[in-house]
Design a protein around this nucleic acid. Structure first.
Lengths: 340, 340
DNA sequence: GGGTAATAAGGTAGCGCTGTCCCAGGACAC
DNA sequence: GTGTCCTGGGACAGCGCTACCTTATTACCC
């Protein structure tokens, strides 16, 4: 029966566990939370009693009494990107076994929406937050600061010692792509991007640096589309680029979706890849290895970032000082046929 | 400063809102919850006061006092499948504006894990649950039943009047694929599947029915791989199938990932699609329209299912009897070059 | 052996809301 | 004018936990 209107939950409470194990509720609470001042014999008794009753602590009561929940808020700019799915999954894997609840906020690459999410999620008194990158509104930054909720930043590396970050250097990734294309003999290099978030722009920056160093800067070969990235858009941008600059012989795409679209478009148009133009993607999504030809891409440690960020947060909560405030997990250029 | 150890949250409380607006806390509570027994003038005063203080209700206190939270638990079998991402996103879109929190549980196509998730999430006293399909352990079913939490089932259609479902007929989808391939003149039809969840098996069933009705049953042309589906696997299964049964001239893949892998493999092997063999996918992921050749696929109303399920749940919570307990949102066969 | 210091357990009192009574006062019928 | 309803608003208590303080009990030193 639905107990609508009832004030009790019908579930076993801490008091019942305490009664069954012959201790006071506080001792039971401490035993279940693993607080060391309880005698091992009692701890065992309490745990047995809890198990036999099927007791699960009421998170609402817990949060109310301690002014701190066991929720971790994760803010990501997009769900439709496979990238963040892998990260989320890894975060769950680390936090759930530790009894943490994961609240996901998708702000659709919109600073105002992120701010709003932060304001709302603060009401849940989260015990920690995992944020994507460092780029956010001043108001958002202030709310985070004022709340005192521990934060870990994902995907980028911060410059300050205070902000904890787990990720890799987006600039270096851009540099690696450019270097690889130059080393394989390409001379007219293009950068094609959509969804111009800060990380994309950092990769662009790295790419530009290497071109400049090699005396091969070509700002006219940069295609920066503000709209959401997609396979279809990748095909269009590729066609546009080739029409505009037929001498292009190497392209770095800001993500694999665009690159996949371009590869398929090249197939349709009969453009030889890598013969006429080499392509490099970013993220190394599962499909990249199976494209025709297989796509060279920069493999990003998406799952590792999620795991690392979650673990760093747990360490913060345990009061340990996090050893490295800037955890660089690197990336890997996976060279395949599309760029040889 | 982190207020570790403090018992209060430092955030404005209902009592402060009440004081500022000159009413009692209960009246303030009622006003903010939109309970009609409060005079309009007072309601406005309370809302103004709340806004000026930046008051956001403490969900933990709320859940504790009413023995019911504002969380909705969504259980899905996989996150790595784009399919469920679209559904989740739509659910969020409907529930967040109504002040509901969405808790996501991914059970990785594992019944025991789903059961575990249900047990744990019950502690949050969710006000509703959105479930994927009907296939779950008896223990899980019993917990759901006993808890009295309103449930809506997604993706499949139930047979009972009591279980509320929003989805489409998986069997009909399988039938549609088979019918289309037969109508375009194909004679030796294969079914290729991985990740054999109940919905995949229902599509298989529909596919078989039509073949049987046309006297074209070919059980030897069914490839059922239990492992997780992926692009790579699609390619492998396609090669295997072609080697084993060179006379196959039409294939229905249980999802687009497999079909994409097969299309790419066909390109590599120089197998003419649709000349030698026609292909039909399922889900119509964004990439399908851009494949070479473009992939015929069955477009599933993923977002609509999420929206519909969330709205049905809201209706249930408002005490409205849901008009249709079985909401069939249909599907659409999108015919493209791969099957013509 | 008495004093101090640690240690283990419990008592008490909320955390911030809302369900459940209850009461005041106006509308209405007789 | 009295009784009955209804309606808007408030008092009260308690949801199930944990922070804080207090009290027993032991350990250990000089």
């Amino acid at each position: 029966m639905t107990r609508i209107g009832s004030r009790t939950t019908g579930r076993p409470t801490l008091a019942e566990v305490a009664r069954l194990s012959g201790v006071s509720p506080i001792t039971a609470s401490r035993a279940l939370r693993g607080i060391s001042t309880v005698a091992p014999a009692l701890v065992e008794k309490v745990i047995t009693a809890a198990a036999s009753l099927g007791y699960v602590a009421n998170p609402a009561a817990r949060a109310l009494a301690s002014a701190r929940s066991h929720s971790v808020v994760v803010l990501i700019p997009s769900l439709s990107n496979q990238l963040f799915i892998d990260t989320l999954e890894a975060i769950h894997e680390v936090l759930r076994p530790r009894g943490m609840e994961v609240l996901i906020g998708n702000y659709h690459y919109d600073a105002a929406e992120e701010e709003d999410l932060i304001r709302n999620y603060m009401a849940y008194q989260p015990c920690g937050m995992l944020l994507t990158g460092f780029d956010r509104s001043d108001a958002a930054r202030q709310m985070l600061q004022a709340s005192g909720v521990p934060c870990v930043h994902m995907m980028e590396l911060g410059d300050s010692e205070k902000a904890i970050s787990v990720g890799f250097s987006q600039i270096e990734a851009g540099r690696a792509a450019a270097r690889h294309l130059l080393e394989s003999g390409r001379k007219r290099l293009a950068f094609v991007a959509a969804q111009l978030d800060p990380r994309v722009m950092q990769r662009a920056e790295g790419f530009r640096q290497v071109l400049a160093e090699a005396g091969k800067s070509a700002p006219e070969l940069e295609l920066l589309a503000p709209q959401l990235s997609s396979i279809g858009l990748g095909g269009e941008l590729f066609s546009d680029l080739l029409a505009k600059a037929p001498d292009v012989d190497g392209i770095f795409f800001c993500n694999d979706d665009l690159a996949h679209g371009a590869l398929l478009q090249a197939l349709r148009q009969g453009v030889d890849v890598p013969g006429r133009v080499a392509m490099v993607g970013f993220n190394d999504l599962p499909a990249s290895a199976h494209m025709v030809p297989p796509l060279t891409s920069i493999r990003t440690p998406r799952a590792a970032v999620g795991r690392g960020a979650a673990q760093a947060l747990l360490a913060l909560l345990d009061g340990k000082q996090v050893a490295v405030s800037r955890q660089d997990l690197g990336f890997e250029l996976v060279v395949r046929e599309s760029s040889c």
